[in-house]
């Protein structure tokens, strides 16, 4: 248990009679890129909120970075990063100020913030833009910056909720390069997406249907099992059986 990044056992979240998450079980290894797929309304977001310490499960067990989701939410929050589909930096703050703010919120020390943000700005090639307001940057750059900020405090796990929505294919490719880099440095990546080509980039993927995990394996194995050429087909075959309407 201790050396897993995330563990879930019979994790359930009930809203009245409705089981948004219905007894899901899976483990995520450290350094793994774990794709978390599912149609809208399949329960992805609810599950993710529990794992991020935003909500309590109704029953079942789960640990994130070795901490219990019932009792150690605070410790979980210190050890994870998060980036959502909605753009999550402040438009009327400069690149610099955004980095400094998030670093500050996570309690990174001042000299460390300075050191890391210089590195970060150099890596992203944003030297000229560092003093400009984020609102003026192109969306692709904003997303890359938002990702860098999400892992700025060196979390053990980073949760990405549809991080590449609305971004062009080239930038998406670059974005995934950054994800690989982060994974190589030991950060576990937990990512949801609707792009099936992105699903292929993951080490393993789980597909949620009606609150349950219907399939969990590497992309290659899944394609074999469902006799499909692409992840698109796999996803379609699984999601077709859904009883719930999306949204």
């Amino acid at each position: 248990m201790e050396n897993k990044a995330i563990t879930c056992k019979d994790l359930t979240k009930r809203f009245g009679d409705f089981k948004a998450v219905d007894g899901i079980s899976f483990d995520v290894e450290p350094g793994e890129i774990f794709g978390f797929l599912g149609a809208n309304g399949a329960g992805k977001t609810t599950a993710m909120r529990i794992l991020c310490g935003l909500s309590y499960p109704t029953s079942g067990q789960a640990t994130v970075a070795g901490f219990d989701v019932y009792r150690q939410q605070e410790k979980i929050k210190k050890n994870i990063g998060y980036m959502s589909q909605k753009f999550s930096l402040y438009d009327n703050l400069t690149v610099w100020e955004n980095i400094r703010f998030y670093g500050g919120v996570y309690g990174v020390s001042r000299p460390e913030i300075k050191k890391r943000s210089n590195e970060l700005i150099a890596t992203l090639g944003l030297e000229k833009e560092a003093g400009k307001l984020v609102g003026g940057l192109p969306l692709g750059w904003k997303q890359k910056l938002a990702f860098s900020v999400a892992i700025f405090h060196r979390p053990k796990i980073v949760f990405l909720d549809e991080p590449t929505g609305g971004v062009d294919p080239v930038t998406r490719r670059q974005f995934w390069d950054m994800i690989y880099e982060a994974a190589a440095s030991g950060i576990t990546v937990f990512v949801t997406t609707h792009y099936m080509d992105e699903a292929e980039y993951c080490n393993r993927i789980s597909v949620m249907v009606d609150g349950r995990v219907e399939a969990l394996d590497t992309p290659a194995n899944l394609k074999n099992r469902y006799h499909a050429n692409t992840m698109d087909d796999v996803f379609y075959q699984l999601a077709r059986g859904a009883k719930r309407k999306s949204d």
Binding site: E74, K77, K78, S88, D91, F159
Partner: peptide
């Protein structure tokens, strides 16, 4: 509205 609240709530703040 901006979605930054989510980020703040996920943070240890």
């Amino acid at each position: 509205e901006l979605g930054t609240m989510e980020i703040l709530l996920v943070s240890p703040f």
